Computed example of a mutant assay.
Amino acid sequence: MRRVFTLALLAATAGCTTTAPVPNSLPAVTVTARGETTPVGTVAADAADDPAIWRNAADPAASLIVATDKKAGLYVYGLDGKVRSFEPAGRLNNVDLTTLADGTVLVAASDRNDLAGARLRLYRLDTTGGQLVALGEVSGGAGEAYGVCLAQLGDELFAFSVLKTGRIEQVRLEVSGGAVSGTTVRSLKLATQPEGCVVDQRSGLLYVGEEDVGIWRFEVGPGGSETATLVAPADGRHLVADVEGLALAESGADGGWLVASSQGDNAYVLYELPSLRPAGRFRVGRGVVGSTEETDGIALVLGDFGPDYPTGLLVVQDGVNAPAAQNFKLVSWADVIASLGLHH
């Protein structure tokens, strides 16, 4: 969901006494992006939404970004921001990817073409050609598809289908011989609309953003409780509603970072794992490329992505990229850490 700041600004300019409230959020440092993608093809609309990152360990500069135009389909971009390919598939809202034991890079997108029945559309990413190879689709539950995230827990592969109603379906995936199948094994529930989700595969913990409430945690490993725990409320200070994209980067046995898009004040919040202690807030300001506002989806992967991104790559959707259509900005994780005075 996107707050329509532009309308509030126009109303104020016209002499209306009602203006949008100013968030009482904590200060945020400013970093600048080092790159950006070609804008999505859908113009004059809220269209770009969610990215996922594949890191090429053998040749970091050849890493790829898969991202949605939620009105039209899926893009594959290189780190130079140029389009490698486009998959016209209609209303695909969120996307995630994971590398399987056999080396297959599996991509899952939440398909909301049918508002009554969510689907998970699955692809193999041809990492050499930068192409998406369709594998099929499975049910994501009754209702409108919204968020999606993948996790390999033990010997099992799961997709989490986040529905606009607040339900989250845990779907066991089977990928064999170029075909896919899915079985729903658990249904979880939040009271209002969620979207972004990520899984800490080490602990079997699922984090889901409920847009107007905050970030919840579920146990999704074998025997896990279905009760949600609110771990980061949208308090208007650290995290300002809407709570949008979530990204999680694992480091070591239990360390790393959880990052959230604090869309209500155009910022991002960093939480330290495993404590979930708030570790700082930052914004992406104008530099060699533009700033970011009203960010929906985000993705973060640690590791070497070449000289511009030596310790990790953060990709964030830019909801205001005028005069061009929306796109995605590429941020060096080293810049974020240095700006916040933290250690890798």
Rank of each mutant, 00 (worst) to 15 (best):
A57W: 11
I337R: 14
A253N: 12
A159V: 06
H344D: 14
G103A: 01
Y271S: 03
E250H: 08
R34F: 00
V162S: 00
D308L: 15
M1Y: 07
S275V: 08
I337E: 09
N266Y: 10
H344W: 13
D308T: 09
L122Q: 07
V331N: 05
G129S: 09
T68W: 09
L300S: 03
R283S: 13
W257G: 01
V162L: 08
V316G: 09
R186E: 08
D254V: 02
L314N: 01
V288Y: 02
E210N: 07
A109N: 04
R91Y: 00
V336N: 03
S332H: 05
L276A: 02
L342I: 03
T183L: 14
G221V: 06
E250C: 08
F218R: 01
A118R: 04
E294N: 14
A8R: 14
P323S: 14
A57N: 14
V22T: 13
V43W: 11
G90N: 12
G221L: 00
V301C: 00
P307L: 06
L10Y: 11
E210T: 01
N327A: 12
D96E: 10
R167D: 13
Q201M: 13
D49N: 15
L115N: 13
W216L: 05
A52H: 05
P60W: 10
D318K: 09
N56F: 12
G341V: 07
S251K: 14
G73I: 09
R124F: 07
V220Y: 00
L313Q: 07
L246N: 04
Q201E: 15
V175S: 09
A191I: 07
T104H: 06
N94K: 01
E272V: 02
G224C: 06
G143E: 12
V316A: 15
L276C: 04
S275D: 13
D254S: 15
W216I: 03
D235I: 03
T184N: 08
D235L: 05
Q193D: 07
P323C: 10
S110L: 05
Y75Q: 06
Y268G: 00
G341P: 08
R55I: 04
E226W: 01
L230F: 03
R286G: 10
W54G: 08
S176L: 13
G117E: 12
G130K: 12
S187Y: 05
P222G: 05
F5H: 15
A33W: 03
W216S: 04
L157G: 09
A118K: 04
D96P: 11
G103H: 00
A11I: 00
V289G: 12
L92Y: 00
V213I: 14
D96L: 03
A299F: 01
V175L: 13
W333K: 07
E87M: 10
A134M: 07
G209W: 00
V66Q: 05
D318C: 11
T37S: 15
P51D: 11
Q170R: 06
G143M: 06
T229L: 06
